[in-house]
């Protein structure tokens, strides 16, 4: 079985923590890090409000 992937130059998109791509960068591999953050920056209270907002935003009312 031939693993072509490991014979070509790797083009890596890192999704998630930037540190995931650091090892590859240290090995001189090009890494593009996707700018990412958890919803509401991981704040539980705000995330609950976002969920509530999404539920409310479907409800019809008199404008």
């Amino acid at each position: 079985m031939e693993f072509k992937l490991f014979k070509e130059e790797l083009k890596v998109v890192n999704i998630g923590l930037a540190s995931f791509g650091e090892n590859l960068k240290n090995e001189n591999t090009k890494v593009v890090s996707l700018k990412w953050a958890p919803p509401a920056l991981g704040d539980q209270k705000l995330f609950s409000l976002v969920k509530k907002y999404k539920r409310l935003s479907e409800i019809e009312y008199k404008g």
Partner: peptide, 10 residues
Amino acid sequence: MNMKEANKKA
């Protein structure tokens, strides 16, 4: 109307 439509209206 709903809240999504309210934003579109704005």
